[in-house]
Design a protein around this nucleic acid. Structure first.
Lengths: 241, 241
DNA sequence: TTTGTCTATATTGGATCCAATGAATAAAAA
DNA sequence: TTTTTATTCATTGGATCCAATATAGACAAA
């Protein structure tokens, strides 16, 4: 996957998600190509791919712009993620987990427990939690044995703030964030319990509600808009997608 | 949208969904370009777009092939469609429909009623039902005011047999098909009733179950595999997407 | 002063050219 | 006869060239 063309896509995706390219900013082929040190061809292809991913929107005849995401769209995306991951949890429960999946989920749960055992949380802890959380969700989606779920999620996954791959938190209020993420992690336990007991409906309901834990991010996001850079965003971009 | 480049994409999509290009068939850039009377450039772009749509899969270094869709994948897609359209119905109910949306849905319901009033159904009727059905679902998705739903569906929409845009039926058993589609249409009535009374949960449950009416298609699909061309597929390709 | 039209320029889309890469086949050696 | 290696050929990816187009700016007229 280290082909130059793929790298252009990854790089642009990264620049958008990290905010290096501002939302609403216009993007033309030639300057972008020069900036990345390639010709227009791979940039053209990348723009079209990113448009399909929903990160860029086409302006008629004048290239592309970084998609403007409204708070309503973020909320909508989170709802969508909720039902899709809820379905994944249900189907995972109906299929029963493999031995290795059970082991990995248990390991991830334990990893989270250790973070919260201290009674407080640091930024570094949140980075670890972030990776753990992302993997936890991924395992369940895999365990659903329904590839259409991952496909349907792929759009949302690339939307900043709506995906599990983005985690926002308030640097100045880590005590509150401790409670928020601790609660989310308890839901992880509940989901695992439901899945491993074959309780599909229960697993679905918890997972769907669990997505709402992300709604907190959206709130924080809008706060950031006003009071400028009060909070922090971790973003794991999956370069292989 | 009648730009030549867009037409290449639409044409290829059409050829794939109609079966003109067989599932699993390898597709190279040069022959395809010659066949369509364009250069390689628009074809290259089209291939990548269609790959993201899930209609083509990339073979390492040797171009693309028409995606093989297993029956399990179709079932999975239908489940996904169920939860997404279920969510759409719920949110439509929570938002309350606009005047024009209500009018259009009522019109579509009536249109369907007239088809089934005769007590039997013809192939031509099914073509009308197909358009009506597609529009009915589309209006509800719009009424959800959640653009993420349509985005998440877009992948599935392009999968043959899993989308509302494809309708399969058994030509030789129209009496049975009458009962199947009549039942599906009664669900349309129930969904509308729930939405217009603001009953979000009910609307969601009915819509989710309604997706399973499509499962019949999947069964028919596998029958076709065996006994060859016993059934018929209507496919409305949305060329503007 | 404002509006409409025309022209010039910026920019995308398509075609073609060249390089890189991987697969297939043929030839040679074991 | 089989396996391994080398060479050729098919095919994709990137760069550049050319044409089509739309926007912006300038100039003229009302």
């Amino acid at each position: 996957m280290s082909k130059p063309g793929q790298q252009v896509i990854s790089r642009l995706r990264q620049m958008i998600l990290s905010g290096e390219l501002e939302s609403g900013q216009r993007l033309a082929e030639i300057p972008t190509a020069e900036q990345l040190g390639v010709s227009r061809t791979p940039v053209r292809i990348a723009f079209r791919n990113l448009e399909q991913e929903g990160l860029l929107t086409k302006l008629s005849g004048r290239g592309y712009m970084v998609r403007q995401v409204t708070q309503a769209e973020i909320s909508g995306s989170i709802e969508v993620r909720g039902v899709l991951e809820g379905l994944a949890a249900r189907q995972a429960a109906e299929n029963t987990l493999s031995r290795s999946q059970t082991a990995e989920l248990l390991h991830l749960l334990k990893q989270g427990d250790e973070l919260f055992a201290k009674g407080h949380i640091t930024e570094q802890d949140l980075a670890i939690y972030h990776d753990m959380n992302q993997r936890f969700h991924q395992v369940i989606i895999e365990a659903s044995l329904n590839p259409a779920i991952a496909e349907a999620l792929s759009r949302n996954e690339h939307l900043p703030f709506a995906s599990v791959s983005a985690l926002a938190f308030d640097r100045n209020n880590l005590a509150q964030e401790y409670r928020r993420f601790n609660f989310a992690h308890m839901q992880h336990h509940a989901v695992f319990d439901a899945i491993s007991h074959g309780q599909g409906s229960r697993a679905e309901a918890i997972m769907r509600e669990h997505a709402n834990a992300t709604h907190g991010y959206a709130k924080i996001f809008s706060q950031m808009e006003e009071s400028g850079e009060k909070m922090h965003v971790l973003n794991n971009v999956n370069a292989t997608m």
